[in-house]
Nucleic acid binder design. Sequence first.
DNA 1: CTGAAAGCGCTTACAG
DNA 2: CTGAAAGCGCTTACAG
Lengths: 357, 357
Amino acid sequence: MAPATRDDVARLAGVSSSTVSYALSGRRTISDATRRRVEAAMAELNYTPNAFARGLAGSRGGILALHYPYGRRGVTSSEFEYVAAATDRARERGYHLLLWSTPIDDVEGLESLVSEGLVDGVVLMELTPDDDRVAVLTEARVPFTNIGRPDDVAGLSFVDADYDALGRIAVEHLVGLGHERAFFLSQSVRSHERGSGPLARAARSLAEAGCSAGLKIEVHHAAVSVTGGRAAFDALTASPAHPTAVIAFNETALAGFVQAAAFAGCSIPRDVSVVALSIGDLAADMTSPPLTTVSPPGAELAVAAVDHLVDRLEGRSTDAPHLLVAPQLVVRGSSAPAPVDGRRAGGRGAAPAAARR
Amino acid sequence: MAPATRDDVARLAGVSSSTVSYALSGRRTISDATRRRVEAAMAELNYTPNAFARGLAGSRGGILALHYPYGRRGVTSSEFEYVAAATDRARERGYHLLLWSTPIDDVEGLESLVSEGLVDGVVLMELTPDDDRVAVLTEARVPFTNIGRPDDVAGLSFVDADYDALGRIAVEHLVGLGHERAFFLSQSVRSHERGSGPLARAARSLAEAGCSAGLKIEVHHAAVSVTGGRAAFDALTASPAHPTAVIAFNETALAGFVQAAAFAGCSIPRDVSVVALSIGDLAADMTSPPLTTVSPPGAELAVAAVDHLVDRLEGRSTDAPHLLVAPQLVVRGSSAPAPVDGRRAGGRGAAPAAARR
DNA sequence: CTGAAAGCGCTTACAG
DNA sequence: CTGAAAGCGCTTACAG
C-alpha cells in the first residue's frame, strides 16, 4: 500500500490537514486534546512526512551537502573520520548529508548541485588558498561553512585546525627531548609555498617555533610517494647537519622513509626521532614503533563545521564564525630523547631496537 | 533573483511548459526547431530543474542512499575507498548519494529514511549473516543492493568479495614460497564462527585450501586491538609448531603484531612471512617491510553495487544479481621463501633486516 | 508534434 | 485555537 499522507492523518484524527502540519512543526499553538489525537493518528498510520513535498513547499529541505574534492591528494587514513563525523552530526541535528565529490576545479558541478535547490547548505572541505568554490556559493547565496580556509576569509565562516600550533607543538615536543637539529619531510615546493594552505602554514610555524626554541630545521621537499620517502631518508643520512629528529607532513613519503630506515638499520627512535603531522591513528600504529603524531582533530572539526552551518540555517548563530582547533599531540614510540653521543643518525650497522618492552 | 523555473523557460521559448519538460526528458518526440528554442532558453536562463518538484511529481527523485553501519569495527583505512567510489559512480549515473550512517541495529532509522520517500534506492554495506535491514527494505519495497551478503540471499541482489578465493590466494602464495606451517591471526571466536561473515568465510576457505595444499594452519583468536596483536606474537613464538608464516585478518591486531615482532628482533620476512587480508594500501606501506596483502577491490565492489541498483531502478537489469569479485594479491616485502634452516620464528637476537635494498 | 490541466504532499499566510 | 485554500515547480495522462 502507498505510504500515509498528511490527509490520511487528518482524516483519522478528525482535524484539518493544516492542523497536522502545525502539530508537527509546532509553529502555532494547539490544544492538548487535538495534539494527542493527531499524534495517535500519526502513530497508527506510521506516518512520515514526504521529504520532497516538504522541500518544495517549505523553505527548508533538510539536506546538507558535504563537498569533498578529490584529486588533491590520495585517500589518506583519516579522511573518513571527517566524513563519518559530519554525517553523524548532521543526522543528530535533523539533516541528511549528501556526499558530493568532484575534482576541485569542477566548479560547475557544485554550481548545478546548488541550483537544483536540493540542499539547504554546504560544508566545503580542503579549501585551497584561492578556492573558486567560495565565489560560486557566495553568488548562489547558499549558506556554507568551510573546513579549512582560503586566503581571503572576509565574511566567511570557517573552522580549521590551528596549523600554527601544529608546528609549535611538534617543535616543543622535540626540544623538550633535547633535540637540536631536525629534518622536515615536506611535500613539493609548490604546495609548500602556497600562501595559506595547511602545509605552508605548518611549515611557517615550524620555522618560527624552531627559531625561537633553538631547533634548527632543514627542509626537504619529497614527492608524495613511497619512493619519495626513501629518497628523503638518503637525504637525511647525507645531511652534514646530522639531524636527530624528523618532522613529517607527507604521509605517503613517511611510509617510504620508515621502510628505508628499517632497511638501513637505523633505529627509530634511538637514532632518529620521528614526529608525524596529520596522520591517522591506524597508520600511526602500523609502523614499528608506532608514530608520535600531531594531528588535527578531524571529527571535532567536522562537527563544528556542521554545527556552524545548521546554527546559521536556523537563524540562531550570532557569534564569531571563525574557529581554530588545536591539534592533538599523541606520544607513541617514535620519539625519544636525542642521542647523547652525537652518533650520526641513519648510520648503518646499528643493532635493532630490541630490549625493553 | 530567484532561480528560473520551467515556466520562465517556456515563456522565453514561446512553448508550453510541458514541452519544456518533454524536451528535457525526451519522453516524446519534439521537432528540432522547438527543441533548439527550448535549449537556447534554458541556456540563457541558466536553468536547472528543481529537485524537490521533480521528486514530488515524478517517480524518480534521483537520490540513492549508502547505508554505512558503524560500530561494527572501527574506521579502517580502506573504508573511504568504498564510499568515495560509490559517490563517484552514482554521480556518473546521474544520481546523488546520501550517506547514511547509523548503528547497525538502528533499523528504525533506516525505516524512517526510506519512508520519507527521499531515496530511490539503497546500497547496504557490511551485511551481517542475519541482517535486519534486509527485511526492512524488502517490506518497504525499496530497491536495494548489498555490498556483502547475509546468510539468506534468496531473491537478493548483492556484490561481494570472493572470500573463498581470499583464503585460497593467501595459501597458494605461501605454499609457493615453501611454507608448511602458518599462523592465522583471526578475530574473536564469535565473529570467526558466525555463519557467513567475511571472517568466517575467509577462515573456512583458509582451512580448506590449507588442507589440500599441505599448509598446516594454527588459528589464533586475537582481540581487535594493538595489545591483542602483541599477545598474538607471543602466542606465535610459543607455538610448538613453529609456524613460518602469518596470515592476518585483523588489521588492528596486526599493527601490534608487527610492532612486537620488531621489538623482539624477529625479522619479517626472513624469520616469518606475513600476508595481510583486507588491508588498505596506505596501511600496508606503513610497516617495514611493506605488507603483502590480499584485499577485496573496494572501489570495484562499490561501483558494481551502484550499477546494479541503478540498472534495476531504470528497468534495464535482467541478468543475475549475484556478483563475486576476486580479491587482489599484492606482493610487497613481507612475504618471502620459508626459512630453510628450520630456525624457529620469533627467535630473539636475530640481526635486523638490513642488507639488500 | 504540442497545449491545457490535474495532481504529487506538503507549508503558510489568510480568515474566523 | 482551528479550517479552507493557494502555491511550491515539476510530471504525465488527456486532448487535439
